[in-house]
């Protein structure tokens, strides 16, 4: 589904990604772990098309297309979804209005008719139940005054509404208590299929108890320095990141 080759990215003069190679196929869940500052969030931002980062080298093929040539909205319309680590509060824009616009612009780009109001509402009802998002929050302004947990659930709700091919979850577990973590993970698991893929970016192993990865990659200093199965996450949980750093620096 996505094939990242030798990807380098900088912000200002600072190079953050220094040659990422990653291959994700449909139906797979990949976890990307790593210590703080290793470039995890940069990778997710770059894949979503954040223009603050400059791509200096490498290529990304997404379902046969050059991803780096696409604008942020084109990527979204072609099925890339980024669940933000820090979802943005947008006062004055209601959640529902925002989602309806997002869905209908995506459909319009594909040459489809706008979604009928009835279908939209039915979908909202079904998908919000999936992450136990209160109906009153849907009418409120996007993320404004939401608790940390509500914001993360709202991200997964949006993901469910937009039905992406490739979901990138950036530190979705941060700021969640164990109950919210279970709800969010449940939502993500329900959305999994053989046709879509998930990249889970996380610092801690605990999320991976709930969203079980097929592959685990360790990112350090802007490169993937180790890959393995889900047992690698457990090893990291037990031993921390120092042994990886030592291996790399040796």
């Amino acid at each position: 589904m996505i094939s990242i080759k030798n990807l380098h990215a900088s912000i200002g003069e600072k190079e953050i990604l220094r040659g990422i190679n990653l291959e994700v196929k449909a139906g797979e869940v990949h976890a990307i772990m790593g210590p703080n500052g290793s470039g995890k969030s940069t990778l997710s931002a770059v894949l979503a098309g954040n223009e603050n980062y400059e791509i200096t080298e490498g290529s990304v093929d997404y379902i046969g297309e050059d991803l780096l040539e696409l604008s942020t909205e084109e990527r979204a319309r072609k099925g890339i979804f980024l669940a933000f680590q820090y979802p943005i509060e947008i006062p004055g824009v209601s959640n529902m209005n925002f989602l309806r616009t997002a869905i209908n612009e995506t459909r319009e780009a594909k040459g489809e008719e706008p979604m009928a109001a009835k279908e939209f509402l039915a979908r909202v009802k079904e998908k919000s139940a999936l992450v136990e998002l209160d109906a009153s929050l849907l009418k409120r302004y996007v993320n404004e005054g939401f608790s940390g947990g509500e914001k993360k659930r709202n991200e997964i709700f949006q993901m469910a509404m937009l039905d992406p091919k490739l979901a990138i979850l950036d530190e979705t577990d941060s700021g969640l208590d164990i109950d919210a973590l279970k709800i969010v993970s449940h939502g993500v698991n329900k959305l999994k299929s053989k046709d879509n893929a998930t990249i889970v970016i996380t610092h801690y192993q605990r999320l991976l108890d709930h969203i079980v990865p097929d592959f685990v990659h360790v990112l350090y200093k802007g490169r993937i320095v180790k890959s393995g199965g889900k047992e690698l996450a457990l090893e990291l949980e037990e031993k921390g990141y120092d042994w990886i750093k030592e291996e790399v620096n040796a």
Binding site: I88, I90, F98, A102, T106
Partner: peptide, 13 residues
């Protein structure tokens, strides 16, 4: 950041 957030959901700039 808000513009990027909205774009990342499929809205044009």
């Amino acid at each position: 950041e808000a513009v990027f957030y909205l774009q990342s959901r499929g809205l044009s700039k």
